[in-house]
Design a binder for these strands. Structure first.
Lengths: 212, 212
DNA sequence: AGTGTAATTCAACATGCGTTGAATTCGCAA
DNA sequence: TTGCGAATTCAACGCATGTTGAATTACACT
């Protein structure tokens, strides 16, 4: 198996597909563009993964398990102990820290792809239940623990707002760069994380009542 | 000019394109699907609007001016008077109330299309500066007025979270329905609006300091 | 060195795409 | 009723698409 730049052709296909799908969506990318970017014949992607949809699936799944497991570990790290609202939110926002710390552009591309899927009515229904929906109920449970007086309706809506703020951040559209005239940067996940935790916590407290 | 169902063929093309583009994105829709949905020959869309991209543009522009003007009016309705943080946020979330009050499915489709554009790195850069970016600076100014001690960096990030929460709401992915087992509904813009105002206000106060 | 299997390329297919120019129909004014 | 321009359809073009089967190369094992 030929190797170039320390990665196999198979992985290079996934890397390129990840980046292109995140930017242009499923239908905005052709098999030939993927093959071109990976410097590979167009038939090779089909050989390894099958149909175009299977390439998309393979990209989606490659980092899904790792991310989910990492998230679960953080959430249960302080199990038994008295968790704070901020700790729970931090656990949920883990992908931001993760992408920032590794510095791997592949992770940033993957998270942008996740944002594309989250915001799409069609792909959200198709992909999110496979992996990511499962853990949400555990987050909601943790939130119920620190927001004893709140109704489920309020908690789920607040979770939805959190999810939206996260999604737009991961998408890295560059709009905040333009609007703020460079004072903020889409690529600056560290700042996004730093302000997002207190923002969301403040929102939850305003809607779901006081916490201990 | 032939009329059916009180709408011209030209408008029917825009209506169908609006719905399809919102669900499947620009590349996920063909001219023939649009023509089929509008019960019209495929060449007619090109005759009226030009290229496929021009159809997309026409759909985007059709309701843009109206929405922007409506927003501006609400923002300056309480000009001079002492505005509250909540009033500013309410003005920004106007599309939610608007879509809910008219009950027009066309508006819901348009707002979903707006969400698609907002979350896409490519389309966001191309479309948002045309109309929607202009008003944002006025919102930021209003926010500065009620958050005197806050840095621009903090205000822009908070605005970004607000924008994200709104975007995911407009997208109507149906995910909150599934996660909450029916307790919340993506289509329920009234509840989304009701909880979003205090959530965002609480977030701003937590990050940008106290308000009067 | 030789053999078998996986990896990769080559060549080509059927199909669907956006777009266009010519032909036809419609709606209204003279 | 005739004429004329706008609206609409018809037919077809050149091209790019996803996919596949056969041919070729690379590689591990004996």
């Amino acid at each position: 198996m030929e190797k170039v730049n320390n990665t196999s052709k198979r992985e290079r296909i996934l890397d390129v597909a990840e980046e292109l799908f995140a930017r242009h969506g499923f239908d905005g990318v052709t098999m030939r563009e993927i093959a071109n970017g990976a410097e590979v014949d167009v038939a090779l992607a089909s050989y390894h993964f099958g149909k175009k949809r299977d390439v998309f699936n393979a990209v989606f799944m490659r980092r899904a398990d790792m991310l989910n497991q990492s998230r679960r570990e953080v959430l249960y790290a302080s199990e038994g102990k008295q968790q704070t609202l901020e700790q729970i939110i931090e656990a949920f926002l883990l992908p931001l820290k993760l992408a920032q710390e590794t510095g791997d552009p592949g992770w940033r591309n993957y998270l942008a792809l996740l944002a594309y899927i989250m915001a799409s009515p069609v792909w959200s229904k198709e992909m999110m239940p496979k992996i990511y929906d499962r853990l949400v109920e555990e987050f909601i449970d943790a939130l119920r623990g620190v927001l004893p007086g709140a109704t489920d309706e309020r908690i789920y809506w607040c979770y939805h707002y959190l999810s939206g703020a996260l999604t737009l951040t991961l998408a890295q559209t560059g709009r905040i760069d333009r609007l703020s005239k460079g004072k903020c940067k889409s690529s600056d996940f560290e700042s996004a994380y730093e302000y997002m935790v207190p923002f969301v916590a403040g929102g939850f407290r305003a809607v779901c009542g006081e916490t201990k």
